[in-house]
Each structure stands twice: as structure tokens, then as C-alpha cells.
Design a protein around this nucleic acid. Sequence first.
DNA 1: TTGCTCCTCACGTCACGTGAGGTGGC
DNA 2: TTGCTCCTCACGTCACGTGAGGTGGC
Lengths: 283, 283
Amino acid sequence: MFAIGDFARHGRVSVRMLRHYDAIGLLQPVAVDPETGYRYYEAAQLSRLNRIIALKDLGFTLQQVASVLDEQVSAAELRGMLILRRAELQSQISADTARLTSVEARLLSIEHEASEPAADVVIKRIAPVRVAELTAIAPSYEPESITPVIQPLYHDLFERLAASRIQPCGPGIAYYEDSVASETAVQVHATVTVAAEPGDRHDFHVLDLPELPVAATVIHRGSMDDVMPTGQALARWIDANGYRSLGYPRELTISYTGNRDEMVTELQAPIARTKQTDRRGHE
Amino acid sequence: MFAIGDFARHGRVSVRMLRHYDAIGLLQPVAVDPETGYRYYEAAQLSRLNRIIALKDLGFTLQQVASVLDEQVSAAELRGMLILRRAELQSQISADTARLTSVEARLLSIEHEASEPAADVVIKRIAPVRVAELTAIAPSYEPESITPVIQPLYHDLFERLAASRIQPCGPGIAYYEDSVASETAVQVHATVTVAAEPGDRHDFHVLDLPELPVAATVIHRGSMDDVMPTGQALARWIDANGYRSLGYPRELTISYTGNRDEMVTELQAPIARTKQTDRRGHE
DNA sequence: TTGCTCCTCACGTCACGTGAGGTGGC
DNA sequence: TTGCTCCTCACGTCACGTGAGGTGGC
């Protein structure tokens, strides 16, 4: 028989933990003095304590530990719990590995005194959106080539929407694809969020922009004529943080009052982890 | 100007988070209606929100995020925070990798229906202990060889301690080393915890058993004559969980009432991660 | 009038750590 | 009597999620 302090020393846990395990019924002393409330344990209980610690160390909650130890779970259920836990650990590890890469990228940029204020790039999932769209070809991806193409496209789109009595119900989203027209040509898609049936029953196309499961996003302030530095900062961030780009970023207009210099736009670049850093978590 | 719901949608955060950031002064709306309490944000605040999210994603607390954003930390301090964070992430990752290995070991043992009740092995740090000791050579590590050597050794040790008026103040701890006497011979160390000055001023040796920074421990119940299965289960666990043994386990007597069949002993095997699984966290 | 968005409390989370304030046995 | 160990509350942790209960503008 050990008093709680001795038992804690032998089990190398805190007295508070033993009291807690008593309180939740996970490990109860063999005897409690009815007068003083003193708890008494015996050496044989150390093996249960060890089992508790071992399962806890695997990352199970105390509730789960209790149900496993008290044989309220079958072997099949235990297997299920372990498989779930394995998946959790794998994604935890790959998330932490990504964080580590980011921390290291920031450290590097400090060492190089690159003086770039650490880019405020955020990884997000972008949900699918229903939009109305018109498209055209621009000779290159430079803003000077895009602007003269996309502005009349949006003008046209809003007129056709009004004619069809469809109201935009969210932001405009522009996106780009390489065109086969020439080496540098891009297909420009001018779209705006709507609530309407998809299809071509109008003189514009209604479709769902697909989800971007992993996107690197950054806010651009000011005219889209000056978007290149922001886009390049985004590209550098993607590279330095262990990701690779899967295409041109979408441009989501968050705020546009008519003055192009006051525009606020979000660039949303679809990305994936580069193979090297991805391997660990998902084998 | 956005109402809180719109702003939350654009930032892809919850309304509750924005209220929380307001409450702790991390991101305050540009305007609050004094009548209704409605919060209003502007598009330009999205970049601060993004910076908050980015730093939070690196694993910083909101307090740390606040001090970084409000420029209360110098570049050098930021570097220090990042280096600390890197170390935390590294140890987090290697801990999770070890957990993952353990989970996989348990899954394997379930598949093989090995019917061994999952061993209650626990990883602990073993603190250094001051002990009095006597040693002798045994012909092999088998219990049948050890028992006839260690029993008289302990008998002797306790007599000499009594003669020196030194009281044991903790458990007995036996440990073993390979001997050069023969291929199989081992040096048997019979020790017991004492509070005394180290050295050889008595007819026994007083020394400090070194810390075991990482030890795999298991409880053995019953006579030490039957310790082999427990020891082998421990060895299998060490192997299956991505560790390697660094020597014979210590045997710490937790409970001994005079009846050898009722003994409770803890085996403490010094271990280290095998190189393959260790590499990641500590480069 | 019905929805919708907004508001302010305030509890719950998970596994204890950390006092506060007090008691029984050597 | 002084230490030591033990006891029972009860608050705090961290970043919100989740109601409860209520209000203003379309």
C-alpha cells in the first residue's frame, strides 16, 4: 500500500494527476480512509497506471483511454480508433512540416535582410462559386494587355445580365488560362457571382467555378495595372514555403467604388505541396 | 465599409473570431455604431486580418501576433521567436512521428492477432539517483545465474549499511554490464537508494546512477526468476516502436514484502530512437 | 409580420497546474 | 510545536463554438 505521494513517485506522475484520474473514475485507489480521505494505492495498480500513460501518450483522450481499458471497445473498434488516430497524426505531422517550412522561409528572409515586409499570404480553401461569364483572348498576361480586354468584357457582361434581369449577388472573379492562339496568349474569363441556373440559355455562360482545395491568397490594393509586384511576391512566397503553383491566380474583386486606384482585390493561386515536403504525411 | 458578416466572408473567418479579435484589441473595426453596436470594417483591413491569420497559422498565440504586428518586437526579437518556434515544431514533429510509429506497431499487432495484450510500456525520463552498491560477476544474464549472485550481495550490502548506520531511503536498483571475464559473463551491481556522501569511505561504494534521458519502462509482477518473458516483451516493444536498446535494463524494486512471488519490479531500459525515425526532428 | 443580421453575455472545451485554506500523524 | 503529507474547493489555461435572449432595418 502506497500513499498518493509514494505512488505518484513510483509512477512518475503528479499527485494532481492521480487525484484527477480518481475523480473521473479512471484509476481509483484500492482504499480511501473514511476519516481523513487519504487515498491508498497498491503496487499492482502501477500496471494500470502505465497502460493509462501509454495510451495517453498515443494521443487518446482520457475518455477514450477509459473505454479501451474497461474493455468497452471490441478489437475491431480499437482498430478503428487506431486507424483514425494514425490519420490524425499524419495530417498533424504534415501540417507542422508545412509550418516549419514557413518559419524557415521567414528566417531566411530575415537573414537576407530582404526588407520585404513578410508577405501576408494566407492558405485557404476556396469554395465553389456559381458565376456568369464572358471570355476573350488577350495577347499576353501583362496588365497592359489584359486591361483593354477585360474592361469591355465586364461592361458587356453587366449589360447582358441587366437585360436578363439577373442581379450579381457577389464579387466579380476574373481568371486566366493559357491559350493555344499563340505562345503568350491567354484566355481571359470575366465572371461575376450570380444565383441562376447553369447553362447557356442566356447570351452569357453560367457555370460553377470549381473549388480550390488549397489556395495561397493575398490582398492587392490599388489598380490592377500595378498587380505584378503583388503577384510576384505571391509566387515567391509559394516557392519559398514548399508549394508549387497549379495555374494563374484568380482575381476576386472585394471592393470597387469606380475609382481603380482604390480597388481591393484578392489573388487566389491554386497550389499543392511540392513532392519533397509532402511525402512524409501521406504514405 | 463592410458589416461584420460580409467582412468575415471576405476574410473567410468566422464572425465570432472577428468579435474576439475586437475584444482583445487585435483587429478593431474602423467604426462602431454607437446606437446599435454594429461593427463596420473596410477592405483595407483585410491585409491586417491576413497577417493575423498567417502568423496564427505559424502557431503563434494571439498575444504574440499582436506584439509582432504592433511592432513591439525588434527584428532580432522576431528572429528569436521564429527560432524558438522552429525548435518547438521540430520536437512536435518528432514526438508525433514517434506516436505514429507506436500506433502503427499496435495496428500490426492487432492484424497479426498476436493476442499479446498490448504491452504497457511507458517512455519516461529517469532522474539520477544516489545509491550504495556492491558488485560481483555472474556467469550469464539468465535469472538462474543472477539470483545466486545477487541475493548474497544484497544481504551483505544491507548488513554493511546497518554497520555504517546508513538507512536506505528508497528502492533497491540492480543493474548489469557485460564483463570481460567471459563471453557471457555480466557484472552484477546490487544497489539501494541512500542519502550519503559519495566515495569509498565505507566498505561499499556510494555513487550516483546517471540519468536515463529516455527509458522504456515496464512493470514486472512476481519473482525475478520469471522476468524473462517481461524482458523479452519489453525488447520487442522497443524494436517495434522505432527505438533501439542502449544496454541492459535496470531493475527497480517497487515492492518487496519478503515473498518473492509478490514482488513488483520496474524494468528501465535505456533507449534511443533508431536513426531512420530520428533524422527528421533534429537536423 | 417574417427573415435576416447584428448585439451582449456566459458556459463549455481538456487535462490538469497552481494556489488558498485547512487537517492529521510523527 | 514544527514539517510533512494529505485533503477539498475553485480559478485559470487558449481561442474561440455554441446557444440564450433580445434588437433594428428591409
